[in-house]
Design a binder for these strands. Structure first.
Lengths: 144, 144
DNA sequence: TACCTTATCGCGAATCGTCCGCAGCTCGCG
DNA sequence: CGCGAGCTGCGGACGATTCGCGATAAGGTA
């Protein structure tokens, strides 16, 4: 049934695209890097190249299926679009990402853009801070 | 006189650092990439390596002299800190960047963070849209 | 359903932004 | 003015992302 989504987006339904879409949808972590997805594919014994993962993600982004985020650690992460917009707050200690939506902020953004003579198309709001989790003392290292 | 700023930041006053600081301060474009700065140095016949530019910019950032931004085009840009915090709105057509500050947005951000149990340290808000400039029809290409 | 056109894929190599390692050079305290 | 820590330039390394190309598969068509 996801094939419909792809077709609606003007993309051929191919195995790589289905698999990647599936991974994005079923992952517990909402934000995946291209490498994350590639690794998951390998674990599932799918014979899909890393270049294809990047190509597909770029196409998905253009089609509005996913959103690409650039958090502060250099590499892009991707997240499925489930219709509802939201912003992010990232813990600098453990790397956890929370999502939130504040209509007040959204409204003010629109009015600021209007005041400056911009037709707003998109925006990215990311806050960085420290969360109060008990187990959040450790620094998340790349090799987790 | 800028030497003072450097010394206060715990950095030796060296020629590369002074030159780079000068470029950041005098540029009409407020947001410069490492390459931009490097190119400017070359044009001024300064014998300064690209690696040094990156090192210096990183030190400046750590010292709070500049802020590093990641707009959507993959490479980092740097901006002098003149004390006042502000956010950005980027025109998707001409690449122009406007700055703004809205205390309402700032306040709501703080309260959202608090509600989520985060101690906020920093944030990045970037809006993308189309500006209404008359001469904004053209697309800014890398080779300008 | 078999065929044909064309988009897509996998692979390896290339590119891009950024950073590291090291030998030589400078800054600035004494 | 001399010395040592800190800085620099260079070239190469590095990770993330993209390109080029021959091989392959998707899906409209007859």
């Amino acid at each position: 049934m996801e094939g419909k989504d792809l077709r609606k987006a003007g993309l051929k339904v191919t195995l790589p695209r289905l698999k990647i879409l599936e991974i994005l949808e079923s992952s517990t972590t909402r934000h995946l890097s291209a490498e994350d997805i590639y690794r998951t594919l390998l674990e599932g014994n799918e014979d899909i190249g890393l270049a294809t993962v990047y190509r597909v993600l770029t196409q998905f982004e253009a089609a509005g299926l996913v959103t690409r985020h650039h958090f502060e650690d250099g590499m892009a992460v991707f997240e499925i679009n489930h219709g509802t917009h939201h912003d992010h707050i990232v813990c600098l200690d453990c790397g956890r990402v929370e999502e939130f939506m504040d209509s007040g902020i959204e409204e003010r953004q629109t009015s600021v853009a209007q005041r400056l003579g911009f037709t707003i198309r998109d925006h990215s709001l990311i806050m960085y801070g420290h969360c109060r989790r008990t187990n959040c003392a450790y620094r998340k290292k790349k090799a987790s």
